[in-house]
Design a protein around this nucleic acid. Structure first.
Lengths: 187, 187
DNA sequence: ACATTAACGCAAAATATTTGCGTTAAGGCT
DNA sequence: AGCCTTAACGCAAATATTTTGCGTTAATGT
């Protein structure tokens, strides 16, 4: 079901949204996700269950909504002085976050919903890479193609997290990056 | 919740498993998945809901179980005579199946479950690629590294299906393959 | 400040899930 | 083949969740 687009976003609505999100974060830290329920979250947040049902539709949509907020970057990627180090730092952090138990759970919540949440998450990654690329260009470095990094660095990392739950080592990430950057730039 | 490993697998149990799976396939063809319910499936299959709950745990686990069976290959990949054409045929079919509305729904079911279903699906892909690689070797062709194909062909395809719901064109798949095969073989 | 109505709380109704217990039949044994 | 054990099932009661109607509160526009 769809998360309803709110018409009134201030005051009480904002407080409830915040309280419910916080309740989900708190409870999911101590409760296995398959025994999280809407009434339980509602009680923790101090609202009635019907408020959650009317606003988010069902548990899956609420969890996905919270997950996207937790995955939304709070800052620009670090500027470490060069394209290579910027990319390495970003990929390392991404792999570590996503492959952690919390990260895997957030990804599950995002993909389990039938909506546009995954697209938002793809946007986060894309934006960060574009920022790094723009910085590199400003420095006069040979820029890179964001799509190439997504296809040949981020995608394999995500694949292994999702399919085999392989441990993603920094060495593996660096090998992916090194391989890409050593190739002749297409076009 | 976990799909219980059965101790008795014959006769009645087998008939019920079959009937329930069939019911899920039939209903999901005509019903949006967010309004599929266990009681509805049970009625269609001619069993009581408690049978489904005790055996599969919850709707998500049942859907994932059915999805894996639908994604399980029924045959070896076609032998088209050469490594290049074998790979191309396999990747094309994979991309088409997975990016179709049905394929996307099956992937959602698989990933939404907290269990080992994704690993099984990864195994299907891995096995098919290994078969193609073995054939190539038997033909005396320069073989390829299965992991390389997974990382740089399958992974990008899956990424774009999951994250942006980009349309996966044969041209895109072929470009991924061509790029990989044109690279010097590592090691 | 006032009017409008979106969003909420509450409680009843409708559905879905869990559970206890009797029954059926699968798998092992002689 | 016939018997025993007990896993798996059906049924129905108990419990929990989800939906819905309606009155109330307060966000937003004028």
């Amino acid at each position: 079901m769809a998360v309803r687009e709110q018409i009134r976003v201030g005051g009480r609505s904002a407080r409830i949204q915040s309280a419910v999100h916080q309740a989900v974060r708190d409870l999911s830290a101590t409760t296995p996700r398959d025994e999280l329920t809407v009434p339980q979250i509602a009680a923790e947040a101090g609202v009635t269950p019907s408020t959650i049902y009317r606003r988010w539709g069902d548990l899956g949509a609420l969890l996905a909504d919270v997950a996207v907020e937790r995955l939304r970057p709070i800052a620009e990627p670090d500027d470490t002085g060069s394209l290579q180090t910027d990319l390495k730092a970003f990929v390392d952090q991404y792999a570590e976050e996503m492959s952690s138990p919390v990260g895997r759970a957030l990804m599950r919540d995002v993909f389990a919903s039938a909506e546009s949440f995954p697209v938002q998450c793809a946007g986060f990654t894309c934006n960060h890479l574009a920022t790094i690329a723009a910085r590199a260009k400003a420095r006069g470095e040979q820029p890179f193609d964001v799509d190439e990094v997504i296809d040949h660095v981020m995608a394999p990392i995500i694949y292994h997290i999702l399919y085999d739950d392989r441990e993603i080592t920094p060495a593996y990430c660096h090998a992916l990056l090194a391989r890409l950057l050593s190739l002749p730039q297409p076009r």
